[in-house]
Amino acid sequence: MTAMISLRNIWVEYGDKIVLERVNLDIAERSFVSIVGPSGAGKSTLLRLLLGQEAPSRGQILLDGVPLKPECGPDRGVVFQRYSVFPHLDARHNVLFGLECAAAPLTGRLFGAARRAALEEADAMLAAVGLGDNGHVFPAQMSGGMQQRLAIAQALVKRPRILLLDEPFGALDPGIRGDMHRLITRLWREQALTIAMVTHDIEEAFALATRVLTLDKRRHDPHAPHRFGATAVYDLVLDRRVKAEIEAIRSITIDENDNN
């Protein structure tokens, strides 16, 4: 299968600090890639590159063979661990937002029949993430799990091809996490998404993904630790045979702390 996203010799440097070095990666369409690694390894940085929020210092990112513009676009949705819904809008209007932006460049609002049609679409999306009865609830009144469901609905209503998740379930209770795993797996299949998810939960990484990527430093300089960046040290495509290797990867240091 040809790659949908290609990273060619990517470097990310902030000043003289090298965060990512020599990252080469091909991501196939409709795959579900989990990204794990110790805190500060550059997982969020990698996601920001895919999102187009930042450009790499060196190297090239191709989307369908075309260089990616360093700006966010509606073909790539995102859900962060927190703060990815709008506190001043209720659930329906949070989802409606994306539809309104595209259709009404000047006012950012829809009226009349166009608005009714968009609201119907938003309601359907809310129902798909299990928030069908919560259209008029504001984020401040929602649990963490509901807020993340809303953030997912908000992103998916734009029908993105790629969904980027940065520790989306990191702040949730373990019980609720299971529900969210089923939800995201279903949406991934139904909407033919390509997903890249950063997580510090190794079980989650293996339970959901078709491929698990571990970012870490290959080389260490004890006197100048910032001079070496992280790269993909393990890259496991999951099939039955590889599931057996899960135990092996457990020995890798994985950060257990929330970070973003």
Partner: peptide
């Protein structure tokens, strides 16, 4: 305002003007 919110709005297709009008102004 959380940068996550601004990024999210941009992935939803918001222009600079729409960011000001629909995200920043009401908040």
């Amino acid at each position: 305002l959380p940068p996550e919110q601004m990024i999210k709005a941009q992935t939803l297709g918001a222009s600079s003007w729409q960011l000001a009008l629909r995200v920043a102004l009401p908040q």
